[in-house]
């Protein structure tokens, strides 16, 4: 399987899961940020470049669907993919602790960035209220989803990377 196709499939699946399946279930008030999970897991495993590109296209998809100005989410997701890409060198990949920690940090960063650009600049100053009632629940849900999704996604991505490496070797 070639890498771009694989990434495109993962992004599309995450998008549909996040915006259709979870958003359609009214029991869940806060939706987890699955696109963010995909972005930083990719960055964690495959490095900053892949993470950045996956983040960029995930964000672009969200922008294209719902955003007022295209590029807003793309920028935030891309930055998160970029930063997380460097963490892959420092942590063990086989344990779920580091990714969960990263997911918490990434989602916090995501929430704060969206608050800053989308709300603070419009004069909504009650940061603590937003923090407690919106950012924290989302962080918790996203961390939970990371626990569930990380291992399968890791396996999938490793297999995809391997096969794309193998096909690259064949041509050399």
């Amino acid at each position: 399987m070639r890498k771009p196709v694989f990434y495109a499939c993962v992004i599309a699946a995450a998008f549909l899961l996040q915006n259709n399946l979870f958003a359609a279930i009214p029991l869940i008030q806060t939706t987890p940020n699955i696109l963010l999970v995909v972005t930083f897991v990719t960055a964690f495993i495959a490095g900053p470049k892949d993470g950045m590109l996956v983040g960029f296209f995930s964000g672009l998809l969200l922008d294209a669907f719902f955003g007022g100005s295209v590029g807003f989410y793309a920028m935030i997701y891309m930055a998160i993919g970029y930063v997380n890409g460097f963490c892959g060198n420092y942590f063990y990949r086989d344990f779920v602790t580091a990714p969960v920690l990263l997911s918490v940090l990434s989602d916090l960063a995501f929430g704060i960035l969206v608050y800053f650009f989308g709300f603070l600049l419009r004069g909504r100053l009650a940061f603590m209220d937003y923090f407690i009632s919106i950012i924290i629940p989302e962080v918790v849900y996203t961390a939970l989803i990371t626990c569930v999704v990380y291992k399968p996604l890791l396996k999938l991505e490793e297999r995809a990377l391997e096969s794309s490496k193998r096909s690259a070797k064949r041509f050399v």
Binding site: G47, P48, K49, M52, L53, F56, D63, G68, S69, V70, G71, F72, A74, M75, M78, A79, Y82, G85
Partner: peptide, 20 residues
Amino acid sequence: PKHLFLILLAICVLLIASTS
């Protein structure tokens, strides 16, 4: 990676500017 980051950042800013 950092050059790619800057390129994508520029694309984002351009997109935001042009779409608004």
